[in-house]
Computed example of a mutant assay.
Amino acid sequence: MRRDPESLLTPGTSAEPRATGERDPYLTHLGERIRSLRAARGMSRKDLARGADVSERYLANLETGTGNASVLLLRQVASALDVPLPVVLAEVDGHIDGAGQSGHRAAEFSQLVQWLAQLPAGDLARVRDAARHALAPAESRDARHRRIALIGLRGAGKSTLGRALAAAEGMPFVELNAVIEREAGASLSEIHSLYGQAAYRRYESRALDRVLREHDTMVLAAPGSLVSEPATFNLLLARCFTVWVRTSPEEHMARVVAQGDMRPMEGNREAMADLRRILQARTPLYSRADVSLDTSGQDASTSLKALQAMLVPASH
């Protein structure tokens, strides 16, 4: 007997609201996942609410595990279908193939997700790398090492270190944020406020593609959130020798403020907690860089020497 969605929320069903103060573990996990994805992109809750056309209150409920129970209904449907939830949620367009069959792409995607769900972590990493190379084949080792890309959070020292390295090695220095602004004809803040996150990502992708076409040799300082956009980050990894420039959360914050940028502190009493959350969310992505350079407690000269030492084996 079929039941409408509302009937699935009546007392006695698995989707029944729990006692006051008790959260469903699945909704809690979903909220943590959404919050982590938002942190990786460096988006405020207000930004995400505006981009998704939902209220901040709704988003806050979703992130704290008290969101719309209809998500549980989707989980129940996925369970009944015996497929992972991403198969139900994924937006994969079907199409008519040469044999006249529709939905081929969606079916292939569904099968792949189910296989991936069964793989151990080590095999998942190998499949990820294979997919990355298929989407953006890596250039030769020599070609990649002629382009040095610095990634990491603001305040790690990417711009200072990048300019110093470029000057020392006689290479052009490129600040991708500046290229993005030229591409859009607007400042970064204007892009975000007027056009939104999706538009910024498009300009970021175009800017990276442009500098890769225009520079066979360069030192590139990439925006901290670039790593959260898979296609753009994949292109960077395939075409550049990447260096994760890192430091402690305290030094990240202190350096940004020392540069005269008080925005992280304005109206945000939890600025340090937010920064730690962003760093935690992006660490698995930053870790995909070729090498990592910790600048904690180091002056620019010392960090430059350490970076040059890392690059020596790469140039021979």
Rank of each mutant, 00 (worst) to 15 (best):
V312T: 14
V312H: 01
V256S: 02
S296A: 14
L48N: 01
T242P: 11
D97V: 06
E91S: 05
T10V: 14
E139I: 07
T217L: 03
R146S: 10
A231V: 09
A121P: 02
A39R: 08
R144K: 14
L9N: 05
L161W: 11
P223N: 12
A106V: 07
A207R: 01
E181R: 01
M43W: 14
Q259C: 03
R282D: 02
G185H: 06
G122Q: 14
A254M: 02
E229C: 02
V127F: 10
S193A: 14
A254G: 08
A166R: 05
L307D: 07
L8R: 13
L285I: 09
L235H: 13
H192G: 11
A281T: 01
R201Q: 15
C240E: 03
L293Q: 00
L194C: 13
P25I: 03
P120V: 03
A107L: 10
D261I: 04
L27H: 00
T66S: 11
P86M: 09
R239S: 08
N61R: 08
V83D: 06
A222L: 15
M171F: 08
R282K: 01
S36I: 01
I191T: 02
E91Q: 11
A199M: 11
L275W: 10
E214R: 13
G162I: 04
L235D: 05
R128D: 14
R45H: 05
E251Y: 11
G98R: 12
R144T: 10
D97M: 03
G98V: 13
G31N: 00
V71Q: 15
H316Y: 10
E181P: 05
S187L: 13
R213G: 13
S44I: 02
V179C: 07
T64V: 05
A207T: 05
Y200P: 01
A178S: 13
L73H: 15
M310I: 14
P17W: 02
K158T: 02
G31L: 01
S7D: 12
A168E: 15
G162T: 02
S296V: 03
E169R: 15
S296M: 05
V211A: 02
E181Y: 01
R57L: 07
R246S: 09
M262A: 12
Y58A: 10
V257Q: 00
L73T: 09
R239K: 14
V312S: 04
A49L: 13
V211D: 05
G51P: 12
D129Y: 06
Q259K: 14
P84W: 06
T217W: 00
H29I: 03
T13A: 04
G155P: 02
A99V: 10
P84S: 05
L235K: 13
D294W: 04
A52R: 12
L212Q: 06
A90I: 04
R35H: 02
E108N: 12
E16Y: 14
A80S: 15
A306L: 04
E251L: 11
S248C: 03
E32Y: 04
S44P: 00
G170F: 09
V179Y: 09
V174R: 12
L285A: 04
S225R: 11
N68C: 12
D4M: 11
E251N: 09
T283N: 07
S102R: 11
G155Y: 01
E204D: 05
S292R: 11
